[in-house]
Design a protein around this nucleic acid. Structure first.
Lengths: 189, 189
DNA sequence: GCTACGCTTTGATGTAGATCAAAAAATAAA
DNA sequence: TTTATTTTTTGATCTACATCAAAGCGTAGC
């Protein structure tokens, strides 16, 4: 799994063998069964996860107990409760294994430590933030301007893996529509 | 206006007099009349704006011509079509003066130049990205979990200036509800 | 193989908020 | 001031999608 991580890091930044070793030393492995929770509501000390195998789901829940999914991270992607990670405030986001998963994680403290000792890590974080921002803003646009059918069509085009690998319930939660509506869409579109 | 900028920068990062001069040299002033557009759809070369006086509105428009507002920047705030700024792709966002405004702006090219010559600028940009991300994600959460009344109540609590200074039309566009619905909410809430 | 529990589909009904339309009020222009 | 234009309010109607309910499938465990 550390090889996957190396590969991913090399695609983003230029780091020496030496630096790579340091980075690796802060990442620890973790196995999760489907549905296990990694971050619970209100938790403050955040970790950042790298998905080696499986899938993580980041979501929030409103007062009536309905959940809305913000992001799915599959193999070779990072995932974190980023708002809480940035602000240090208790998380309103949960992280859950959507499938049996194998992960690497780094603590918030160590992540910030890397920002100081590995100059390229600042760049890595910047790219991470930029991608997260672009992704979120596109989702925001989608919710503001598209109806259920359009959202589903776009998902099929841009992220078919979500539809293929995950149960309707989670896809519906990602699109912020009901399972019934998604089911009806599937039979029509 | 450059004093305002200095003041704002000092609140974010530590820069020498010397560095401040360099930074200032890349910002140019600009006056705008209410409703004037700064970024038009599909434009690629982005600028970043600092609001000295007035208000900028960042929004997108869907196929049916309805607009949805992503952000209002008032005095002492930065504004940019950030997705396009990051990706270099044509902008799907517009920027418009919501009031008569006085601005400073820096080009994308110069902004990236500063990233290279002023070490603290990387930190400034990181903070900017972090804030933009947190803000956007909170908006996303709000749209996914709140109804019209809740959204309006929260806006009154957290950003009353938007309701006080701007016409219903724009407030409604920010909340992504119709003007009529907003009007009815105002008389009830 | 059978039983049970979680998913998905299908149908009937309800509702928040959009849209349409027109009056009333506020601003700007003349 | 008077007139024109934009903004806000109020009422009637419509619609996309949620919710409720029940039946049909699939698959995991016994």
């Amino acid at each position: 799994m550390y090889e996957q991580l190396t590969h991913y890091l090399n695609s983003q930044i230029k780091v020496s063998e030496e630096e790579l070793k340091i980075i690796h030393s802060f990442f620890r492995p973790l196995k999760l069964k489907k549905n296990e929770l990694l971050v619970t509501h209100g938790q403050t000390s955040q970790r950042t996860f790298f998905v080696g195998k499986g899938c993580l789901r980041i979501f929030f829940i409103n007062e009536e107990g309905q959940d809305a999914t913000r992001y799915f991270a599959f193999e070779d992607q990072f995932a974190t409760a980023l708002v809480s990670f940035i602000t240090g405030e208790p998380s309103e986001e949960f992280i859950q294994a959507a499938e049996d998963s194998e992960l690497l994680y780094i603590t918030h403290k160590d992540f910030y430590h890397l920002l100081e000792v590995i100059p390229q890590w600042e760049k890595f974080y910047r790219h991470y933030l930029e991608k997260a921002y672009v992704n979120n803003t596109k989702r925001l646009m989608s919710f503001l301007t598209q109806d259920a059918t359009e959202k589903y069509r776009q998902l099929l085009n841009e992220n078919p893996i979500i539809v293929r690998r995950l149960p309707n319930k989670m896809v519906a939660s990602y699109l912020n529509i009901s399972q019934e509506t998604l089911s009806r869409l599937k039979s029509k579109v």
